[in-house]
């Protein structure tokens, strides 16, 4: 079992991160090349000020028509994304892991805070799942891919919380936690989660069109 732990926390982590980094670079570069080849009439209107204007407005909760239309979704979305990054980067156990492995260290959340916001992420995932099941206009367009993406992001948090609270065998739970995290990282460029790579550009493009060509707000 320890051999498995050593493998998932060592070589497999390198593989997962490599797939993520090189996969992301590949996806971004090939998408940019495709855009240059086929979407010249869109690229020509890309504007940094209008992109930033759009991004900024969409980063404000309830600052847009979309965010105003479904408050629960808005809260869940913001809570999810903020807490996701906080946990991934600043969770005490994660910082200790990097510290032990590479001797690099940075500020971290207290364990209690980390625990609470991990539950916030899981809560947001529950909101997403309930919406997919209960709201007709979401259920109607939900496909296997969408559930898979939700499962991918939820699993590291569920296993992480179980490992932290020492529910179930600690070694096994930790292995599952690392494995699910690696699966998530590696698959970001190749699933619905690729919005992590592309959303900034689709948002920027819409901002540029609405700002530069259409001369109105896109929020």
């Amino acid at each position: 079992m320890i051999e498995i732990y050593t493998f998932v926390s060592g070589p497999l982590a390198w593989i997962a991160w490599s797939v993520f980094v090189f996969g992301s670079i590949y996806r971004l570069v090939s998408m940019y090349n495709l855009a240059k080849a086929k979407d010249g009439s869109s690229l020509a209107y890309m504007s940094l000020p209008y992109s930033l204007r759009s991004i900024f407005h969409w980063l404000v909760p309830f600052g847009t028509l979309g965010w105003k239309s479904d408050p629960l979704m808005t809260i869940a979305t913001f809570a999810f994304h903020i807490c996701f990054f906080l946990v991934a980067i600043f969770l005490g156990a994660h910082v200790v892991f990097w510290d032990t492995a590479f001797g690099i260290s940075w500020w971290s959340l207290s364990d209690t805070t980390g625990d609470i916001i991990s539950f916030v992420v899981i809560g947001a995932c529950v909101v997403f799942a309930v919406r997919r099941l209960a709201l007709p206009h979401v259920r109607n367009v939900t496909r296997a891919k969408d559930w898979f993406a939700l499962l991918l992001v939820a699993m590291p948090f569920v296993t992480g919380v179980l490992a932290y609270h020492q529910i179930g065998p600690s070694l096994l739970m930790t292995i599952l936690h690392i494995l699910s995290g690696e699966l998530l990282i590696a698959l970001i460029p190749f699933t619905r989660l690729s919005h992590a790579l592309f959303a900034v550009f689709t948002r920027s493009y819409m901002g540029s069109e609405f700002g530069g060509v259409r001369r109105v707000r896109d929020w």
Binding site: R203, G207, E209
Partner: peptide
């Protein structure tokens, strides 16, 4: 719908 999509889908 452009005013509603966080990702900016046209």
């Amino acid at each position: 719908c452009a005013h509603y999509c966080p990702i900016g889908i046209d």
